[in-house]
């Protein structure tokens, strides 16, 4: 089966700076992969590149069958990116935000109620403007937007940031359910204990390259032994 993400020596630019300096990576359908590495290693850049937001200038980069060097805009409607920012309109209510982003993706609005209920936003909070929400409630709303859009590839940058323990557990459940339903998930996180228990595979990024690839943190599995197949740089 064709991998969801296939990078071979991919170089991506942030401005004029090559923030990804030759990444090799294969990720299959339904996998949950943890991206690990120090600040500035290139984790966020890798996620944004997979989302088609950054130009790939050399190497091979194919996501969901879209060649990012030729048509990176084509992949965007199929991925969901949860970054550090919320991506929400502060003067719209929680429900209005979800309805807007769901309709923008040309999806049925029936997914909105389901996403609100899953993220515990179906009560009074659904009609509260985002400006009046706490940081954790905003994060849950962003997650609900992602959930309502049902992307094939989830790109999560510090998904647990700003959430209490219950909400973190909820997010982990949602991620596992999405992967079980066939979605592919890339998670960049510094919360290793939680993230490692969530992920099936740990990819270490450093200096804009993949430097290690193992089934679990500290447990180099058979994937890491096959650099050709799994892109260990």
């Amino acid at each position: 089966m064709e991998p969801v993400i296939r990078f071979r020596g991919a170089v991506a630019l942030v401005g004029r700076f090559p923030a990804l300096a030759g990444v090799d990576l294969d990720v299959g359908r339904g996998e949950i992969v943890l991206l690990q590495g120090p600040n500035g290693a290139g984790k966020t850049t890798l996620l944004r590149t997979c989302a088609g937001l950054l130009p790939v200038v050399s190497g091979e980069a194919v996501v969901l069958g879209h060649d990012l060097r030729r048509e990176r805009r084509g992949v965007r409607a199929h991925v969901g990116l949860l970054g550090h920012a919320s991506g929400l309109y502060g003067d719209l209510t929680v429900e209005e935000n979800l309805r807007f982003w769901t309709r923008a993706a040309h999806l049925e609005l029936s997914t909105v109620d389901e996403a609100l209920a899953t993220m515990g936003l179906d009560g009074r909070l659904r009609s509260v403007t985002v400006n009046r929400l706490s940081a954790g409630q905003r994060r849950r709303t962003s997650f609900a937007c992602l959930l309502a859009r049902r992307p094939e590839l989830w790109l999560l940058d510090e998904p647990h940031a700003g959430l209490d323990n219950d909400a973190r557990d909820l997010v982990d459940t949602v991620i596992r359910d999405a992967a079980a339903a066939g979605a592919t998930v890339l998670v960049a996180s510094h919360e290793l204990e939680r993230a490692v228990s969530l992920a099936e595979r740990v990819v270490v990024v450093s200096g804009g390259m993949v430097t290690s690839d193992s089934l679990r943190a500290g447990d180099p599995g058979p994937l890491a032994q096959q650099p050709e197949a799994h892109g260990v740089s």
Partner: peptide, 17 residues
Amino acid sequence: AIESGDGRSDALRLSGL
């Protein structure tokens, strides 16, 4: 201005619109 800040420009590019 309503599209700038808090990741809204990225969200707009990824929206499928």
